[in-house]
Design a protein around this nucleic acid. Structure first.
Length: 284
DNA sequence: ATGACCGGTCGTACCGGA
């Protein structure tokens, strides 16, 4: 089975490249993030023409995730139990002192907030798959950062039983966290920034403690398996990137990884996403 | 390549992205 994850930065803008990539890379299962479209406007028909079914969580202009599969798509869920909500119109509602004893989601309960389209789960040929778009965090002092941490804490609790059950399980997507200093081009440029803080990395470690393994892909060029390069400033050509698109697999999946790589070619040329796909071949 | 972003939107500036 070929599994892949790709933040496409608008499935509408990326549709020609996505369809082309599906034809050449031929993943059996593809997790998408930042589709940036409603469920109604998702290009399910074009994908179906290539043999892919779509499990979609969409909310319009922001976020949006999906799982595409050509090997079956069952038991679809478009959020997880206890998923925190977010109120974009007044994020200050979450700007409260952090209380370790308070349920994280309680900090984000809001009359006007919504559960964002950031997680979709589905079972594909016996493999339980999650596609995640973890909140960015913006700045460590911003309420969005507390939302990010709470979101990850709630997600861990939501999948604990699924992971413990021991069946083939993988959760992948744009985690918006670089697991180690080596996963950014220069840690010296990240003072005071999100994506590299101890608390974000601790949230990743807590996921691994459930029994998940970081499937680190091999780079196709350079010695860094970066998956994201900012559009600005020629960052891609200087290889100033980050590894923030992750594949976290339980032992049943990590033990059968034949190959894993970053398809940096998909970041080249005209009109790319700012992320490259991570491709994992499994002997399942 | 002697420079360097993109997508979406009740849009023609601004927000969000990381």
């Amino acid at each position: 089975m070929r599994l892949a994850t790709w933040n496409v930065n608008s499935v509408t803008a990326r549709l020609p490249r996505l369809l082309d990539w599906l034809g050449t890379a031929g993943p059996d299962v593809l997790c998408l993030q930042e589709t940036k479209t409603s469920v109604e406007d998702f290009p399910a028909a074009q994908l179906r023409a290539l043999g892919y079914e779509s499990a979609i969580a969409g909310q319009g202009r922001w976020n949006g995730v999906a799982v595409l599969s050509r090997v079956g798509l069952d038991d679809i869920v478009t959020s997880f139990a206890g998923q925190p909500s977010w109120d974009a119109s007044s994020p200050q509602h979450a700007d409260k002192p952090q209380d370790g004893g308070t349920a994280p989601q309680a900090l984000f309960a809001s009359a006007t907030g919504i559960v964002e389209a950031r997680a979709v789960g589905a079972t594909c040929a016996g493999l339980r798959v999650w596609s995640l778009y973890v909140p960015n965090g913006r700045e460590p002092s911003h309420p969005h950062y507390a939302y990010k941490l709470a979101w990850l804490t709630a997600y861990r609790a939501a999948i604990a039983d699924e992971v413990a059950a021991g069946g083939a399980f993988v959760t992948c997507g744009d985690f918006n966290i670089a697991p180690t200093d080596a996963d950014v081009w220069d840690i010296g440029d990240f003072a005071g920034s999100t994506h590299v803080t101890e608390r974000e990395r601790a949230a990743l470690a807590a996921l691994r403690d459930l029994g998940l393994n970081d499937v680190v892909p091999r780079p196709l060029k350079h010695d860094t398996p970066f998956t994201y390069w900012d559009y600005r400033g020629g960052m891609f050509h200087q290889n100033k990137g980050m590894r923030i698109d992750l594949v976290y697999a339980n032992d049943a999946v990590a033990g059968v990884v034949r190959d894993a790589y970053v398809d940096r070619d998909a970041r080249k040329g005209t009109g790319p996403s700012d992320h490259a796909p991570v491709v994992v071949d499994l002997d399942l």
